[in-house]
Amino acid sequence: MTADHFILAGRKIVKGKASGQAIVTREAISFNGGVDNMTGIVTEPGHELEGQNISGKVLVFSTGKGSTGGSYKIYDMVSRGTAPVAFIQTTPEAITTIGAIIGNIPVVSGFEQDPTLAILNDDFIELDADAGTVSITRTQ
């Protein structure tokens, strides 16, 4: 079994370090209205991740969207253990940033490439938001 290893360089949106398996979507995510905070399951009908669980994952998505209630929902998910461990976003957005700040979820964005294309589902991610780096290990 071989492993590919590469690093994406972006900028810190919210500080911290985290690691875990990637779950990737090209779409935006609404944390109030599109995700069940009790379980971590994406509920938005027709969403690329509908029915999938983002708990404990490194969530790679285009940006946040929808209800401004999403920030406290993220905080609630952290408190009940259903939150992703980190956000990697193509574009930063206020509701997900604010939720990540009070929930202590590290967030990196501002990459040269689109992270939702560069990263694949189940890639192992080690993220250092303060350094702005996302280290990806992909086993073939």
Partner: peptide, 8 residues
């Protein structure tokens, strides 16, 4: 105004 979450 920006889109402001509860905490902000």
């Amino acid at each position: 105004t920006n889109r402001e979450g509860g905490p902000s």
